[in-house]
Every structure is written in C-alpha cells, then in structure tokens.
Amino acid sequence: MAITKKPVIKNIPYEEFKDNETFEKLVAELNQNGTNVIVSTLDDLINWGRSNSLWPLTFATSCCGIEFMAVCAARHDIARFGFEVTRNSPRQADVILVSGTITTKMAPVLKRLYDQMADPKYVVAVGGCAISGGPFTKSYHVVMGVDKIIPVDVYVPGCPPRPESFLYGMMQLQRKVKAENFFGTTNRKEKDPYEAEMETKNEQLLNQQEEA
C-alpha cells in the first residue's frame, strides 16, 4: 500500500517544513508490514485528537523557561495549537519541554519526572543547554545534552529559542504524533526497565502458588 499517512499541519504547506525526510522514513517504516485500512483510519482520527491536545509539563529550570512563559502568554498564545493545558504533575502530561540547563544534580530528578509520565510521552529539548550544554560546555556540573539521560523527539535550537521556533518545534512534534500508530503498538521508545523484573516476580509468585 502506498504511503497514505502524511503528517499535515493545516494552513502550512507540507513543503515549507524542513526535514521532511525524517517523517517519510517514519511513515515508510510504519507501512513496511502493510497497514490495516480500518485500524489506520481509526489511528488517523485518534492521532488528530492527540496531536492537537498535547499537554506539556510545567518544567523550566532557567532562562529558556521564561521564553516558554512568554509563548504561553497573550502575544504568542500556544492555546492556538492546543498546548495551553500545562500540567504541574507529570502523571497528567504528554510532553516534557526541557527548557533550560540540566545540571548533574538535576539529572536524576528529570529522569524520575520522565519515568512518572504515562505513555505515550514525548520530549522536546529546548535551547542550547538542553541540546548539548550550550554555553556551559566547560562546566563541571552540567549535563551535556538531555539526550544523555532521556530520549528526545524534537530539538529546538537557540539561546533562548524565539517563541516562533518554540511553536515550530511543537508543530514538528504534532507531525510526529500524526505519523504514529496508536492501535496495536505502544509508542515506547525504550524498553520497559521493570518488565523483566515484573516477569520474574510473577513467575516466582506462580511457582509459590503452585507449590502451595
């Protein structure tokens, strides 16, 4: 079956986005095994809803966070894209915007926040610091890029990125969500660290029960 999924954003022509190749690769991978028409139609519907209601976690460590606030406020207004429902609890958030420097002291906290979020979850690295350590690459206390500790979906460069780049980055994330399967797969990017542990525990339990 031909590629039917095209991550389209209303009012912005497909060609105007940079980096369409990544998406085409994603879509090609999805289609490799052939798609079920009914499931993919349902997928499209769900993904349309999901991509337009991504709830970010209120998470900001430094300067970039102020620009994030500016994006939330009146002039730039992320409500236009459905991102305005910022959540203070990671349990309710879909996407974590890592805006600001992540220090080695913060790293375990960030990892825990990420682990607490429910699947499917996304990570956007905002600003030079989150991408690679930014101006602090010489520092002894800065993590040189959050992708060292959690998987990143979209990188938004800048120091700080302009609000427009924020929005562009978020649109890229929307396109990514649109190019995903929802039914039949989980969108995990990493192996569940507790899966093996749970299995052995379950086995032990079963064995115990059998013995009893």
Binding site: K18, D19, T22, F23, G127, G128, C129, I131, S132, G133, G134, P135, D153, V154, Y155, V156, P157, G158, C159, S165, Y168, G169, Q172, K176
Partner: peptide, 10 residues
C-alpha cells in the same frame, strides 16, 4: 528545527 538530527547549540 530539525527532528532527530543533532543540531549544534547556539
């Protein structure tokens, strides 16, 4: 903004 490609920091 590029997806999944490392972009150099400003």
């Amino acid at each position: 903004t590029e997806t999944k490609t490392q972009v150099q920091a400003a």
